[in-house]
C-alpha cells in the first residue's frame, strides 16, 4: 500500500522533472545564440535533473542505491558549471554574444 503510494508520488516528481527537461530542450531550440542557449541547457542540468533524482529517491527510500542517486546529483551539479564555463570561455574567442543593445546602457552600472 504504502510502497504503491510512494511509487505514485515519486512518479509524479520524476514526471515534473522530465517536464522541466522538456522546457529546457525547447529553450535550446528557441533561443537565438549559444550563450542564451546555455541558460536553457542549465535548466535541464539543474532543476530537471534534481527533480528526477528526487523522484527516484522517493521511490527508492533509504538504501545504498539512494546514496548512489545522491552521488549522481552531486557529480552533475559539480561538473556542469565547470563544463559550461569551459564552453563559454572557448566560445567567447570566436563568437560575439548578441546583446540587447538598445537598453544596455541603462543596465550597465557606472
Amino acid at each position: 500500500m504504502s510502497s504503491v503510494f510512494l511509487l505514485w508520488v515519486g512518479g509524479a516528481i520524476t514526471l515534473s522533472g522530465a517536464v522541466f527537461c522538456l522546457i529546457g530542450a525547447l529553450g535550446l531550440l528557441r533561443l537565438p545564440d549559444v550563450y542564451a542557449r546555455m541558460h536553457a541547457a542549465s535548466v535541464v542540468d539543474t532543476l530537471g535533473m534534481l527533480l528526477l533524482v528526487l523522484g527516484m529517491l522517493v521511490i527508492e527510500g533509504f538504501s545504498q542505491n539512494a546514496l548512489k542517486l545522491l552521488m549522481i546529483a552531486v557529480f552533475v551539479l559539480f561538473t556542469t558549471p565547470v563544463a559550461a564555463h569551459a564552453l563559454s570561455r572557448a566560445a567567447l574567442r570566436e563568437i560575439e554574444p548578441q546583446l540587447d543593445s538598445k537598453k544596455q546602457d541603462a543596465a550597465e552600472p557606472p
Binding site: M38, S42, T46, L77, T80, P81, A84, H85, S88
Partner: peptide, 11 residues
C-alpha cells in the same frame, strides 16, 4: 553559472 539565467564567461 549553476543558476539558470546567468553564466560566468570569465573570471
Amino acid at each position: 553559472t549553476l543558476t539558470p539565467g546567468s553564466l560566468t564567461v570569465a573570471l
